[in-house]
Design a protein around this nucleic acid. Sequence first.
DNA 1: TAGTTCGACTAGAACGATCTAGACGACGAC
DNA 2: GTCGTCGTCTAGATCGTTCTAGTCGAACTA
Lengths: 336, 336
Amino acid sequence: MTELQRRPTLMDVAKAAGVSRALVSIVMRGAPGAAESTRQKVLEAARELGYRADSRARLLRSSRTKLLGLIFSSSQPFHAEIVDAAYAEASARGYEIALSAVATGRPEARAIETLLDVGAEALIIIAPTLSPEDLALHARRVPVVSLLREDVGDLVDSVSSDDYAGIRIAVEHLASLGHCRITHVDGGTAVSSDQRREAYRTEMLRHGLEPVIVPGGPDEETGMRAGQVLQADLPTAVIAFNDRSALGIMESFRAAGISIPADISVLGYDDSHFARLSYVQLSSISQDAPLLAAAAVDRAVDRVEGTLPPGRVVRTPHLVLRRTTGHAGAQKVGQN
Amino acid sequence: MTELQRRPTLMDVAKAAGVSRALVSIVMRGAPGAAESTRQKVLEAARELGYRADSRARLLRSSRTKLLGLIFSSSQPFHAEIVDAAYAEASARGYEIALSAVATGRPEARAIETLLDVGAEALIIIAPTLSPEDLALHARRVPVVSLLREDVGDLVDSVSSDDYAGIRIAVEHLASLGHCRITHVDGGTAVSSDQRREAYRTEMLRHGLEPVIVPGGPDEETGMRAGQVLQADLPTAVIAFNDRSALGIMESFRAAGISIPADISVLGYDDSHFARLSYVQLSSISQDAPLLAAAAVDRAVDRVEGTLPPGRVVRTPHLVLRRTTGHAGAQKVGQN
DNA sequence: TAGTTCGACTAGAACGATCTAGACGACGAC
DNA sequence: GTCGTCGTCTAGATCGTTCTAGTCGAACTA
């Protein structure tokens, strides 16, 4: 069996390069105060030994870790896209990301503790479920950024997508296609469901249309049940709470021989992976995960580096047009 | 703005309780060597001050972090299930998990470095793509466990599902339903694709059947294309590389008016979230993610704590019967 | 009584980095 | 020639823990 080898330290590099530890430290973190020639010599020695700074020791002394904590839910595919984008943005700003998942039997509070223990300087929480009070408690230690949820109190930053605007775009799109009977299948108790439901109601009224809301949920199963309810009195268009719900709705239509978009238009929300599949081609409202993620990371870094106060960032979603929405046609007369 | 408050240290507690730092340390980690009376006194003082050990300092000194590094791919929904289960198992064995994702522009090597930096004592990598040599390089530093991939060299542990057995079960299931013309849509260059393809070939021959392989891939799009190829000469059953591929295959059949399982049986692999959807009900081979995850965590912990040599753990997958496979019927005669 | 053992406790050295204060030589100004 | 300045480099303190090697007194043994 091979012996597990000790990881090289500053001292090792210093000896190899024939200089002091302090100088190696200076070179490694790119601080001024080293001659170019020795800088090269030290870097060479470090590379040779495969040296990497021990973040625990560094942190103990300097309290700078350049580490951002990101909390996501392992059961939400949409979160994965955000994680992906967050890495890119953090890297661009010279930070690393420490991940922690909310999973079954692993509450948000636990995820937060873990991240603080490994030395995260700021926390980004995707769709946090903690109360504003609990969040504020943590926000007194480190900057906290809430992603995809807005009502998080004054001590916590938030980066979110404008749900109201998203629904407005959805209603306007369908209205412009001549639809008058537009139903909303809501998200039940899911985050953002209330905002979207209210936005839908307001926008419909603004267009002089009657809002009809069918209870739903955040996944295919609830969408399918809602689809069956819809069939009792088929509208000409549906705005689903999200793409997964839309998928369920469409599936129930398919089983009943109702064709899309000829008989009814279906609009999703999230522009997720599913919506893009060639055999789905779901028109959807995109929250643009990469942009949201980048905004959250920027916010976190700004808070860590500067002293600016917590604030809100709101981005406007946009429509991604595919195959499931079309002009209100003959069916409107027939079905009415 | 509220000032960020300094957290209390061992010294603070020691002063408050009127003892030495060392004794507080002993009490805090429940080590033997303190009288019950002083133990209570110290605990009381610690509680009073809201003391929490600074894990950075603790880890720096003790080199025990009780931290397991887990590397997954943000684009694989199947990995999320494993992450979920790994948390539970690690927690049960008194360890924490540090997560790191492989994402676009963020290679595996980078993910590994991050985890080592925060002090992971062992690495669990889901479907690693590094070469055995590169893996071995890291395995000299810390125990490395490969999950879902077997050919990783002698220095690296592996926990995997027996692909051969999985395919054997698949072929046997379909053969027992009377199918003779069973086609395999492979996974292209995806991990495990080669093993499953070969297992399929061998098992078909063992049953005296002729193996037919259609090139595919790990997702819906490639599955759909394969489905179209299949239609030129429809077999009575298909074994897809995974569930997503099966979904694509089924979609292409649906578009062509081919019904499942009346005209053709479709069998997936992974028993993922998709397979379980009420309108999909895909029969599938389950690798049992929670069990695999638990085995990987156990392996990692055993390696960290004991001195046992690297080894292989192989689990046998099982069949989950749903609605997409059925008896070979009339179509066999008609289509031939 | 002297020696041994034992439990309770402590001082001080790690751990691996950063930071502060200062040394040293070279160079220019007066 | 002395002084100050500047750039480069180093020694040693420090962060908050844990670990090692004791000390100290009481109890037990012979």
